[in-house]
């Protein structure tokens, strides 16, 4: 078994696509219209055949209370790997991204948490502090 697709709920798929590609730097893998929404996945340019992230429209009434409770406590819904957390923090802050948690050492690696502007908090982490 492999992890091929995982997803995050997004308030607005168009805005999410723009943020996940233009700001974060992922690339579109699939963008298939399905009714009033679309089936959109993005991948990392460094792993175009790797795991896909599905940008799933918010529709179910349980999604809002679920996400609100997580965001209130600062809990990220997804985690992405980066080479250097500090450098990403600087790059994304310059692009206007808000961090709820600045780069913090956690055991043997660095973590930071930002708001994806689509209703979720996302954690970035490096493999080890030594990589920074």
């Amino acid at each position: 078994m492999r992890i091929t697709i995982t997803g995050v709920f997004v308030d607005d798929q168009e805005a999410a696509l723009a943020f996940y590609t233009d700001v974060l730097g992922f690339q579109v893998k699939h963008n298939v219209p399905v009714g009033e929404h679309a089936w959109i996945t993005v991948v990392s340019p460094s792993a175009p055949d790797g795991p896909e992230l599905l940008l799933e429209p918010v529709g179910h009434p349980a999604v809002k209370p679920y996400r609100d409770a997580l965001v209130e406590d600062g809990i990220p819904l997804a985690q992405f790997g980066v080479d250097n957390v500090e450098a990403e923090f600087e790059r994304l802050t310059a692009r206007g991204v808000t961090f709820t948690q600045p780069p913090t050492e956690y055991e043997d690696h660095m973590i930071a948490v930002f708001d994806d502007t689509c209703g979720n908090l996302i954690m970035i982490q490096s493999d080890s502090v030594a990589d920074e």
Binding site: D73, G74, I75, P76, T100, Q101, T104, E105, Y106, E107, I111, V113
Partner: peptide, 25 residues
């Protein structure tokens, strides 16, 4: 200016406090 998540990270990662998020809360 820290969230519950960050405080939990610090307690577990830096201080070895294995309390649940609910206990920290």
């Amino acid at each position: 200016g820290k969230t519950l998540f960050e405080i939990c990270s610090l307690m577990a990662g830096k201080h070895g406090v294995g309390s649940t998020r609910q206990a920290i809360s």
